[in-house]
Design a protein around this nucleic acid. Structure first.
Length: 499
RNA sequence: GCUCCUGUGGUGUAGUCCGGCUAAGCAUACUGCCCUCUCAAGGCAGUGAUCCCGGGUUCAAAUCCCGGCGGGAGCACCA
């Protein structure tokens, strides 16, 4: 046995792996992946997952990543979406080796379509949509599929001028009896008269997804094509198309879609929200778009680690947003300035204040400098903290001094006891009353609860913070002490990132 | 309805292809302690899974086989 079948005795070593699982048939230096979004909307977390996986695999094997706009339906596509997706990808830090548009290969696609028709693997069908879908369900062929070559060629040529949209389509000659409905003579090309965002009126016969993707992946040299698993049934078609065209076949693999609970990515759901003004736009911090997450204070590296932590599986996942937050917190913590901020402010007077200013570290560990806060004995503290204060309590105003409460109620009064640090007593943050800065804190919550729009998904809190806030740039990440991380979104508004 | 995919602690995953090396690793969440002029970060410890269920094969099964059940997707002239 050992001499005759040594390979049977070789056991592959089991070892813990980090990152994505290895790819089959992947040769170092020869892997080509691709990220093929349709420019029909703003990029979101789902795009991020796909792009990161594509890039990571290319990196893992020293290969390359092609960024390709699958823009073959002018009805949906707009120039601004091409730009938005590119901006999103760049923000994520996904590096690609080549950018292209499927629409730039139309001549090639026509050539392949003709080849298909010539060789009898496709025919032009002039039946109406209802008939076609009825035939598919009932597994019967229509008369068009029996038309001869000259008829098909004539009709094909007519698709470029005579026929109106919906009057004729090119269909793949599949198998109307196939168990796989995707194989029952699916559409390959159709007529669309809408001007294309790039090519305007130059073309009106457009390939559909299955035809375009298969050809593009093949000619682009893609070795491993990843897509979400709802496409799984179309693999047979994909391979069949390339087989008939005698073109090289990439390996297609599927992964589970990524979506957060209560945070839909579908345009069908999001568009009405934007139109009805229920969210402020596609960058509303409650949304799972990249722009929204950026505004909210989520950093690209956190998204990457998160995506990788989900691995490459086909099982349906209810993504744990808290895990993303945890990764994010660890990344932004070292660079987030610490500031004092109070919500539901309550006046707090220290009667025997004897100080005019105090110097405070901007970060407990990292050297982020110091700031000087002017004080005069009049402060604000958070309503939340004020509620628990009773006359006689001793607390410490963080970084300042210890005080004893002498009057509670709507306005609090206190007296300094001493300045020594006492670990046991409560410590609360404060804001100087004389030059407190008014800000709004936007707190995004889950958008949908039980499929219903959550009317309370955005909480807006009025708050006061230190004047030093004014010196920070928009985009700065701040940790409001004892409150949480927020990102400065504009001069007087911050967005709550997470605790 | 038909077809396909999927099912490991509260959550996300590793391990499943090639059965034993781990009666299940990591992360997150939670609890406690340490550190700390934050309820953060960091350090340490702990709770928590008979691996969907029922059979079978085997000396041995999360891993193989059979049968159930649960969840998701596709069935477009959208991608």
């Amino acid at each position: 046995m050992e001499s005759n079948f040594p390979e049977l005795l070789v056991v592959k070593p089991k070892q813990d792996r980090t990152g994505l699982p290895p790819l089959e048939d992947a040769e170092q230096g020869r892997v080509v992946t691709r990220f093929p979004p349709e420019p029909n909307g703003y990029p979101h977390i789902g795009h991020a997952k796909a792009a990161i996986i594509d890039e990571e695999y290319a990196k893992m094997y020293g290969g390359k990543l092609i960024f390709r706009f699958d823009d073959t339906n002018p009805e949906n596509e707009r120039l601004e979406y091409y730009a938005a997706i590119k901006v999103g990808l760049d923000w994520l830090g996904v590096k690609y080796d080549q950018v292209k548009n499927t629409s730039d290969d139309m001549e090639l696609i026509y050539k392949k379509a003709e080849e298909f028709i010539q060789s009898g693997y496709a025919y032009v069908c002039t039946c109406n949509k209802e008939t076609i879908s009825k035939n598919r369900r009932e597994m019967v062929s229509c008369k068009c599929s029996f038309g001869d070559l000259s008829q098909n060629i004539k009709r094909w040529n007519s698709m470029f001028e005579k026929y109106k949209p919906r009057e004729a389509i090119v269909r793949f000659r599949g198998d109307m009896h196939s168990e796989n409905t995707a194989m029952r003579d699916p559409t390959l090309l159709r007529i669309i008269d809408e001007p294309h965002p790039i090519h305007k009126d130059r073309y009106r016969v457009w390939p559909n997804y299955d035809f375009a993707v298969a050809i593009e992946d093949s000619v682009d040299g893609v070795t491993h094509a990843f897509r979400t698993k709802e496409y799984e049934l179309r693999n047979e078609l994909y391979y069949e198309i390339l087989d008939k065209l005698k073109m090289r076949k990439p390996r297609v693999l599927e992964f589970a879609r990524l979506e957060f609970d209560g945070m839909p990515v579908s345009k069908r759901v999001l568009k009405p929200l934007v139109q009805e003004g229920k969210v402020s736009g596609y960058d509303d911090p409650r949304l799972p778009t990249l722009e929204a997450m950026r505004r909210r204070g989520i950093v690209p590296e956190a998204i990457r680690r998160f995506v990788l932590s989900l691995s490459f599986t086909k099982s349906d996942t209810l993504a744990p947003f808290e895990t993303l937050e945890s990764f994010n917190r660890k990344i932004i913590d070292p660079t987030s300035i610490r500031l004092f901020m109070v919500t539901d402010p309550v006046k707090f007077a220290v009667k025997n204040n004897n100080m005019t200013e105090i110097e405070i570290q901007n970060h407990p560990q990292k050297d982020m400098g110091k700031r000087t806060v002017k004080i005069d004995g009049f402060f604000y503290v958070s309503g939340h903290d004020a509620k628990s204060l009773k006359v006689g309590d001793e607390i410490r105003l963080l970084e300042l001094y210890n005080v004893k409460i002498v009057k509670s109620g709507p306005d609090i009064e206190a007296e300094i006891t001493d300045n020594s640090f006492k670990p046991k007593i409560p410590k609360i943050q404060w804001v100087p009353a004389q030059n407190a800065v008014k800000i709004e804190v936007l707190i995004p919550k889950v958008l949908f609860v039980n499929e219903q729009f959550n009317e309370n998904s955005l909480e807006i809190k009025q708050a006061l913070t230190e004047p030093h806030y004014l010196e920070l740039n928009v985009g700065a990440e701040i940790q409001f002490v004892r409150y949480g991380y927020c990102r400065k979104d504009s001069a007087n508004q911050v967005i709550y990132t997470h605790k």
